[in-house]
């Protein structure tokens, strides 16, 4: 491992711990009450959901509308596991999470292999359909608790555990997306034909991205199940998938830091708007439209926020020679790749 990389990792790790320490202190000081902590637990879950969807939508460049379906598979797997086999404590919780992820990933492969050859909007509508089928089937069968939902899932609301599971998940997703596998996935977003003729196995990498995405959605689902204790298939309808998609798009498709940021903001802000509960969803949807009109590439575009870049800039300012940039983010162009050329090659522009 090169030296400057090691420094970057250490800085990032210390920042994650620092943020955790701040939250813990605020909680201990009584500034963050139980209500705030419950919102922050939701934040950890939504961060995993948004970053995992970012892999398919932002990095692979395929629009999917069934993310909540994979979340529900994870939630039910963890719920049923905890109720029927049930291992105690944090290790049991983590095993449940892993199982939930694996099971969701299994569904991801099974659904991804046939549907990923569809393009653009067709893929969007088919993934929406799969999400709905999963929902209907969960309600139909009895072992899932049927339409009444699954009750009495052991609660696990330990913020420390949830925080570090989220941090680890994001770190793992980010690392793989900046490895050769992630580059292959990005190349499919950029130009599928060029990718194929550069030797990339497009089918394989599409499936890999979709599977990874489902795996982490499953983990988030499991955390959700343990967080609220009662789940119903109705919680995982297409509206939920839309919510997650909105987080990814607002943050900037393809940007992990953007997804983390917007998942945080979009979880906290609606809660703040609760005082205006009646108008909350109206404001929310208006904001969505306005942001799309005025900043369609999302808040961060494709940029990633790197703390090391900030440090280098500061060093430069104070006269020290900066080390080579650790990672080079692509130019923050408008997300024009999602243009209209994917499913039909119509000439556009008036």
């Amino acid at each position: 491992m090169p030296r400057e990389k090691r420094i970057t990792y250490l800085i990032n790790l210390s920042l994650i711990i620092l943020l955790f320490a701040i939250i813990t202190i605020l909680e201990a000081a009584g500034i963050f009450a139980g209500y705030m902590m419950s919102i922050l637990r939701l934040v950890t879950i939504n961060i995993i959901l948004a970053t995992s969807l970012n892999i398919t939508v932002g990095n692979l460049g395929q629009i999917t509308l069934g993310h909540a379906g994979f979340m529900s598979i994870g939630a039910y797997t963890a719920g049923l596991f905890a109720k029927n086999i049930g291992l105690a404590g944090v290790p049991g919780y983590l095993i449940g999470l892993l199982l939930a992820g694996l099971f969701a990933a299994l569904f991801g492969v099974a659904i991804g292999v046939p549907v990923l050859r569809l393009r653009g909007d067709y893929l969007a509508i088919v993934t929406l359909a799969f999400g709905e089928i999963i929902r209907v089937l969960i309600e139909y069968f009895d072992f899932t608790g049927g339409a009444q939902g699954l009750n009495g899932i052991p609660r696990m609301q330990n913020f420390t555990v949830m925080y570090f599971v989220a941090a680890l998940s994001v770190a793992l997703m980010y690392s793989i997306m900046t490895s050769r596998h992630g580059r292959a996935i990005l190349s499919i977003r950029e130009d599928e034909i060029a990718s194929e003729s550069s030797g990339i196995n497009v089918t394989f990498y599409k499936t890999m991205a979709f599977t990874l995405s489902s795996f982490f959605a499953g983990i988030a689902g499991a955390m959700h199940a343990h967080n609220i204790g009662t789940i119903g298939a109705g919680d995982f309808g297409y509206n939920r998938s839309f919510d997650i998609l909105v987080m990814v798009v607002l943050g900037g498709m393809g940007s992990f830091t953007g997804a983390v940021l917007s998942a945080t903001v979009l979880t906290i802000v609606p809660e703040m708007l609760r005082e205006f509960a009646d108008y909350r969803m109206i404001i929310y949807s208006l904001l969505l439209i306005i942001i799309m009109i005025f900043r369609p590439e999302g808040l961060l575009g494709r940029k990633e926020f790197h703390i090391t870049n900030v440090i280098n800039r500061l060093k430069k300012k104070f006269g020290k020679s900066p080390p080579k940039p650790v990672s080079v983010s692509p130019k923050p162009d408008a997300a024009e790749k999602f243009d209209r050329t994917d499913s039909s090659s119509k000439g556009r522009g008036t």
Binding site: S187, I193, S195
Partner: peptide, 30 residues
């Protein structure tokens, strides 16, 4: 047909993907 938003270096490294062999886990865990 380039990978427009990626760097020049990344464009080339994508073409070299076939000659690399480290697994997704190796990439994930560095």
């Amino acid at each position: 047909r380039l990978f427009s938003h990626l760097t020049v270096l990344e464009n080339l490294k994508i073409a070299q993907n076939k000659d690399m062999s480290y697994s997704p886990f190796s990439g994930m865990l560095r």
